[in-house]
Design a protein around this nucleic acid. Sequence first.
DNA 1: AACTGTGGCTTGCTTG
DNA 2: CAAGCAAGCCACAGTT
Length: 895
Amino acid sequence: MRSLDTWINNKRSRETPVKKIEINDIRKERVDTPPPVKKSGRRENNVPIGNVGYVIENKGNGGVEPGGVYILLSADYDPQNEKVYLKFYDINREKIVLWYDVTGHRPYAYSKEDPEALRNHPEIIKLAEKIIDLRREKKHDTINDVEIEVTKIIVKDPLVIGGTRSSLREKITLWEADIKYYANYIFDMGFQVGGYYTLESADSIPKPLDIKDPPEIKKYIEKIDDPEIKRWIKILSMDIPNYKRIALDIEVYNPPGIMPQVEDPKYPIFMASLRGSDGLKKVIVHDLRNEIKEDKLKHDDFEIEIVKSEEELIKRVLEIVQEYPIVITFNGDKFDLPYIRKRGELLGIPNISGLIKLGRNDARVSWGIHIDLYELFKNISIKTYAFSNAYDIVSLDTVARALLGKGKVSMDKTFQEATMEEILKYSYVDAELTYELTEFNHNLVMRLVTMISRIANMTIDDVCRLSISNWIKNRLIYEHRRHNYLIPLPQEIAGKGGRKHLEPITKGKKYVGAIVIEPVPGIHFNVHVVDFASLYPSIMKEFNISYETVNCPHVRCRENKVPGSTTWICTQRKGLISEFVGAIRDVRVLVFKKLARDKGLPIEKRKFYEVAQGSLKVFINAMYGVIGAETFPFYYLPAAEAITLLGRYAITTSIEKAREKGLEVIYGDTDSLFIKNPDPQRLKEFMGEIEKKLRLKLEIDKIYRYVVLSNRKKNYFGVLTDGGIDVKGLLGKKSSTPPFIKNIFYEVLEILKGINSYEEFNQAKEKIQDIIVNAEKKLRAGEVPLEELAISVTLSKPLRAYTKTTPQHVKAARKLERVLGIEVQPGTIIRIIKTKDRDGAAPLELVKSIREVDTNKYVELLKSTLEQILEVLDIDLEKLRIDREYRSLDKFFNF
DNA sequence: AACTGTGGCTTGCTTG
DNA sequence: CAAGCAAGCCACAGTT
């Protein structure tokens, strides 16, 4: 880690090292006298109550200290004091400090009525007491590209604008009325979440610290002219500290088979495990069966603390976690934290409601920040882009196995049956894994959420709980504010007009997507795959795609048509969305991707830049998707279609050009071309010409030693020049395929991997035949365990939502509920076995004997899975059919 | 009334 | 986000 002192470019800090700055006298004086409390506000002990610039000092929560070095991580609104407060991480004291607004900033929204009209409006009159001001303001109307005058309605509290049934936004048309107040505050004040700040005096506004650029970054900043890009480089290259944090996990003494419910917390908490970044490893236990003997108290892996009651346990846990600014849980939003609070309330623990704050779907802690890893890992962008689908089900066990290579301690006994010692171990490992998920790979997860906070300019709490479309929305709102643009209503964007030009290929879709080239079936050697480097984001950048620039109001732009449509694109103004994609794309490609691969840098730094470029990639990849999603506030169908139309144009133009040059295109999908055995010179020329013509860069993505194509699109496999194997779309790869068949599939692939020429295929055929004949024998002889035959299918809706058809997994799930009383929710993976009964399938749990299995179905499934690779290799499965004796054996089992 | 074949449709999973 | 695949459901028509 580089030392902070060396790169904080603050004069005062350099003269006197940061850590030694003395506490300002003013602050000391103030902290001794508690700040005045508003009459309406109730005061409880230990509850931080804000006033001007500082808070009451309590455990784990310090007041803002002038001269300190802070990172802005979060914010919230305090309704009692009617102020926004910011949560800063103090990097020296390793605490969260709260800073309450000192500017008198108030909530507001905009109306297009003039102030006079509004003053006479009955709804405004009704709320007159709570309205502070109606002020005329100039804003830029992005859709019509003109300056307009709007009225800023400034109010006393955010609920006047929105959040209740009687709020103003429910009564009259308002603009910018659904932005969270604390987010508004951050935008208006120009705060950068994840940025460094200091405070000059207790009641001043936090001032950005000018951070000295690391030497490797300097080179880039000097080279780049665009101030916008420079700003991005600076923000994203600032160091992220190893946050002091603690993982928490509780155990509830519930009867066998009954899950503890937050709504009805009737069973006691008897154990809590803690794992801190400072090395704390502790399990606190209320030994309700009195079985832990003094001599057993020692444990190699963690410290055991025995308490006499549940009340003592909760108090002790709260005492410890308050020492940590960041609390990590796995499912703490919906379980651990609300459960602790509710049990605490039942036991009459004072002030627990001030420490754990429950939202509708989340739980926050007053002295710091709570990160629920379950919510984070569930996030589809985190799952697919950041962790490339390394885990599929989101549970502590599966995520830890995938990312840490180790899982939970298995426990097949109930708490009643297990010894305390066993439960201790089990419980501790949960906290340990939870902590390690934030620490592995150089604190990747903590760095990732901070980096995303910076890009979205969104609080860490929100980043961990909201989806990518919210991250992007947040950043775009901020960009509107920076440009003084009024944010249009979704219906205004939709009302711009413009039309759809091509019917979607798939029924029920809103607009056309990409082109997939008809594959040439066969085995092809030496295939070069060229593709457009991030095609859709590049199109968005290069062709100025944004909701306001597609079908813009300028007459002279109407000539600038998207090929094959009447849609035109603005040539006068840069689109906001286009600008944002362009900037983060450039920053990623020109700076952070290079730094992440710079072998001259120490591994720690490279890992850091890897997180930066990876976070940027998450945003870049999602930009096209959100503009085509109706739920996105800047959704505009003609803009989404313009992107795909330009993509179609790029790929068709490239195919034509390639064929003109005598290059053989055998397949392609969306942004790629598979070129068979190309002449290197011609390939190079071709790529250059395309880039010149389309302003889109083509690159060689990979080279296959050989690739096997069938007549199916999105279905192929290939062996790369380095021996690696690519399997795309084939049945054998699908998560629903039974393990037994999957294994056979991969065994066959393993054989194909070594092949270099046509001749070698014939030898491989023999081996493959053996494998298949054996597999079928095993199946028919009933030698395959049921587990290996299970077909795993996700239940994606609640059971009652399947009204049109009843698929097999839904039938099975209903049976599970009826017969075993197992609760199934959306997201549950149902494992079914194909059976010979009327339904044709049953849940794995209810199949008792191998004799119920419909062997023929499995042979069929094996056949269709393997056929996808074998038909091209000219291996005829029918010829491999097993001798009559096995068929008769099968018959024997049937009767 | 029971069976068979067909095609449209639903569902889930993958590719880019 | 759309394109595309496999598998099964289900209504319907035609046959037995």
